[in-house]
Design a protein around this nucleic acid. Structure first.
Length: 287
DNA sequence: TAGACGTGGAC
DNA sequence: TGTCCAAGTCT
């Protein structure tokens, strides 16, 4: 297929040199990187990933420590429930999969914190299986180049996977590169805000470009709510306290992080419910 | 299925 | 300064 040939050639020349693309990078490393990359930019992930893998080179190594250590090492990557899920996944891999990251999509999907994207990313990038891998970058490239729309609109797993599947070469090794290449194209050329069509390998065949870049008029993705003053911000502030402390954080100390008592209570309750904090004698700690 | 869920860089 | 958005998952 023409598109695969074009993006694969472009990727060989322009793809970034990233840790998870190094030869010999482990399946465990791929799994950790993919979870860190969920909704988090590459530049923030790289240093955390390298420190993480140095400390915990295998699932069993991570599983041997308390989940709170994973949350602490997660630092400020955001969405710390991912750290908790990764610890739980490592525990299951160590106990039920012989300390080997599973390679089947279904087995990967059964692990906590691993959904449609991550399961396929691990099966494809770590093990070379032939599946479509669809993330937000892929959806945008397909929307523009093939459908002539400026934005991808709301996701539909079945439709999105079918669209990417149609682009993949038959050979698994080539299909693997195509998955990485389309993702990379969306990440550094066909970007959401300011696409660099002048250097795009698909410019000549891009339906959006051919149509004169029509404004997107389809269903809008949900608008992200304001972070300042949100419960999410309060949770983040409390988690920062818990990460920094090596003794229980007292209720009085938590009161100092946010003035609104009701909002504070909601945040603490949520963190306890999520297992990101535990109540102990004298206050709260990481699990 | 829409909304919750962190954090910080870019414009 | 404020808005947008970043390799999603879970409920």
């Amino acid at each position: 297929m023409r598109i695969a040939r074009l993006v694969n050639a472009w990727f060989a020349l322009e793809g970034r040199d990233l840790p998870w693309r190094r030869p010999g990078f482990t399946a465990w490393g791929t799994l950790v990187s993919e979870i860190m990359l969920q909704q988090t930019p590459v530049a923030r992930v790289v240093p955390r990933l390298e420190a993480w893998l140095e400390r915990w080179p295998t699932p069993a190594a991570l599983a041997s420590e308390p989940p709170g250590e994973a949350v602490r090492a997660w630092d400020r990557l955001g969405y710390p429930r991912r750290a908790l899920a990764l610890h739980a996944a490592a525990t299951q891999i160590a106990e039920r999969h012989g300390n080997v990251v599973p390679e089947d999509v279904d087995a990967l999907l059964a692990l906590p914190g691993i959904g449609d994207y991550t399961a396929r990313a691990v099966a494809v990038f770590a093990y070379g299986h032939r599946h479509p891998v669809v993330d937000t970058n892929v959806r945008r490239v397909i929307a523009r180049a093939l459908l002539g729309r400026g934005e991808a609109g709301p996701p539909s797993t079945r439709r999105d996977l079918a669209a990417m599947e149609a682009l993949l070469p038959a050979d698994p090794a080539e299909a693997r590169v195509t998955n990485a290449a389309v993702m990379e194209l969306g990440a550094i050329v066909c970007t959401a805000r300011a696409p660099r069509c002048d250097v795009c390998p698909l410019a000549e065949l891009c339906a959006w470009r051919a149509a004169g870049y029509p404004a997107y008029d389809g269903p809008k993705a949900a608008v992200q709510k304001k972070f300042e003053g949100s419960d999410r911000q309060v949770r983040g502030l409390i988690m920062a306290e818990l990460r920094a402390a090596d003794v229980p954080v007292t209720a009085a100390e938590i009161e100092t992080v946010w003035p609104d008592a009701a909002q504070r209570a909601r945040a603490v309750d949520g963190l306890l419910r999520d297992g990101l904090a535990v109540q102990v004698d004298g206050g709260y700690t990481l699990p």
